[in-house]
Amino acid sequence: MSLYRAELRRLVLRRLTRWATVLGLAVLATVAVGVFLSNQKIDDAARAKAQVAAEQYWQQQVRQTEELRAECEQAAARGDQSDRFPPDCSQISPPPRDVYPAEQYLPTTFDFRASFGQTLMALAGILALVGFVVGSSFVGAEWNTGGMMTMLLWRPKRVTVLLTKLAALLTGLLALAVTTTVLWFGSFWLIATTRGSTEGMTAGAWQSFALAGLRGVVLALVAAALGFGLASLGRHTAMALGGAVGVVVVGQVGLGVLLDLIEAKFIAAWLLPTYVQAWVEKEVVLQDWQLCQRNPFGPCEPETLTLTWQHSSGLLVVGLVLILGGACWAIRRRDIS
């Protein structure tokens, strides 16, 4: 317990923890402010303005169509056979009025029920990034500077030391992620009330958002634990960060290109970000249009593949077990020098 308290204090004292937190929060605040500024509340005046704009646009289209038909008839009278115009000029008819609904001419507005779910993905992504960086440097810097060795001179039970450190990291990150998520819900609720609408928020909708937020928090914790495990395995922060960049850039981009070349189905199903998205957004439906391309006649129904958060959870659990298990095994077995 005393070790846990010391590690928690170390986590909070570290500059990188503070900087990563501030930076993450700054990015999230920027997103929220951007959303706030680019949306507007729809009132009667805005609706009337949109009505006028739609009407104007439609009339402009009608005028243009009539001019075109006039040109077509003139050409027909001249006996022009060019295929600039259809053979029967009456085919050129003005669009009906309802092609231009007034809603399309409304300013953008923030509909909480429709749009909040996507912002949760951004929140989870940033929290996971902060978690990974803080997690990997928390143990990586200790290995680099020999702090780990000093600690083991005080507490010789290596696995206990490592796991206590991890527990302190996860506690700190949980506090950060939960607070941030609550603030995120609050900010966007505020944005929706002032710059959009909060209609249709049934209990079911709330529950689904709350669960998505929770999965985002879990994602951040998993990312922190993975960063922690990798840095402990490599005994260096740079190993974890380098490894992650390596996997993401070389592995994923390379894999994507390769799968594209061999025309594999559902390429996205092989890419990690898809699973992250499926985890936060509950499911991702992948479409494959290749069959349509081979059959140019008739309507095209793409093949679909649904990845759910359960699929992702399997992946996360396997990753966690492998990397944390490996880190525990390595710290037990390997010499510390």
Partner: peptide, 11 residues
């Protein structure tokens, strides 16, 4: 800070 972290950890 360094010593105090060790002191906490080692009671």
């Amino acid at each position: 800070e360094t010593l105090s972290l060790l002191a906490t950890a080692g009671q």
